[in-house]
Design a binder for these strands. Structure first.
Lengths: 213, 213
DNA sequence: TTGTTAATACCAACCGGTCGGTATGCGTGT
DNA sequence: ACACGCATACCGACCGGTTGGTATTAACAA
């Protein structure tokens, strides 16, 4: 149980454990259905510690979204889908990577951001904002590869690299919802497969150097 | 304020108003964040009336999902996208219809089922089940047109009509989440446009009578 | 090295208020 | 007469948040 130092001011042990617990519990139960007491029990800390680190339950939601953004961006930055020479291959490898992540229990692969967004967008604007930053921050990392693939294929259609990146995110989010509704992870994989086919079709049947749409 | 009669046993005035209020309030705030008192106030009834019609808050969630399924299936059954000779045109017209529904405020076009599924899938199995019936009940209505379009185009790929119908639903659900995160309905429209392009590409560049994938 | 001060991390008990749910009474249509 | 639809009043449990306080550490002076 190491304490933070002046060189590392924030980031106490209790704080991290609370954020990890928040990620796991909120992902399964949702934000509103999760009580502060439940979070404290899961993290093994007291309520006093909770409100020492977070001004409110909403503030924890914001911090959890940021924590999610940090940890997942690290995961994607270190992933091997970047190791392809062709930009289109990197995009397709990203989709394969996301597909492979869909394994095991629902609580382990679904997205905290998507779950919180639905509950928070009207009631907790600060959480919605943090979710937006996390979500669109991630999609923006996909844009360079998509853009390069478009240029390599001579595509200049009515859609942009940014919009395709966001659409890929939308498919994943929707896939998670269907998996939850049907309680079957293969429903999510199914949609990711359709997404991969879409990207393949987009870049395969291009008119050389012309308008695509 | 007409009361229900013995000839018209269910569907009392208070019950319907509660279900309509549940649809509107839960869609914006989520299920867990919505209190029974709030529902009663929105419907203009007392708590006694609430628990007269619904055994519990969870039972209201189930009834709200069924109510949603009834009203939306009526909307889709009467829509004009069925009035096309070619099955592929009916599928594309369905997508256009869904696209046109995305207008106005978020609370008016987003999906109650998708919202409730995220919160209920682990904590309220009965609600999850009701959401699954509503969601996949709707996607199954799309299958005949997709199947007919596949046969008309001689497509027999690695995907099925049912899976494409579910993928269309996934895109819509994900599009709603992105719209909520970015607080911008055009983010949803953008994804629906990608979905339309996918369906067009699927059926346009077919090998005549051969394997498509 | 040691004593002092200040800041931080954390705890246990508790607060007013709200939660989902219940018990019961009462007016109305049949 | 009486079943039904709903209102009023109320309950114990739990909610998010606050309180006063303690243990640990860093910073600095002697």
């Amino acid at each position: 149980m190491n304490r933070p130092t002046k060189q590392d001011p924030d980031r106490g042990d209790a704080r991290t454990r609370l954020l990890e617990s928040a990620r796991d519990v909120i992902r399964t139960q949702g934000f509103a259905a999760t009580s502060v007491d439940q979070l404290c029990q899961a993290a093994g800390v007291t309520k006093g510690a909770f409100f020492h680190h977070f001004a409110s339950k909403e503030a924890l939601g914001v911090a959890a979204a940021q924590f999610w953004a940090e940890t997942t961006s690290e995961l994607f930055a270190n992933a091997s889908y970047h190791d392809h020479a062709e930009p289109l291959d990197r995009v397709l490898a990203y989709i394969d990577f996301r597909r492979d992540l869909i394994a095991g229990e629902l609580e382990e692969f679904t997205c905290l951001i998507g779950t919180m967004t639905q509950e928070a967008y009207a009631k907790y604007p600060a959480i919605r904002e943090a979710c937006a930053i996390s979500m669109f921050g991630h999609t923006s990392t996909l844009e360079p590869d998509i853009q390069a693939a478009m240029e390599a294929s001579g595509i200049s259609g009515s859609w942009t690299a940014a919009s395709l990146a966001r659409h890929m995110q939308a498919v994943l989010q929707g896939a998670f919802i269907l998996a939850k509704a049907g309680n079957d992870s293969s429903l999510a994989i199914e949609s990711v497969d359709h997404l991969r086919r879409y990207v393949e079709l987009l870049f395969k049947n291009r008119p050389k150097g012309g308008q695509n749409d």
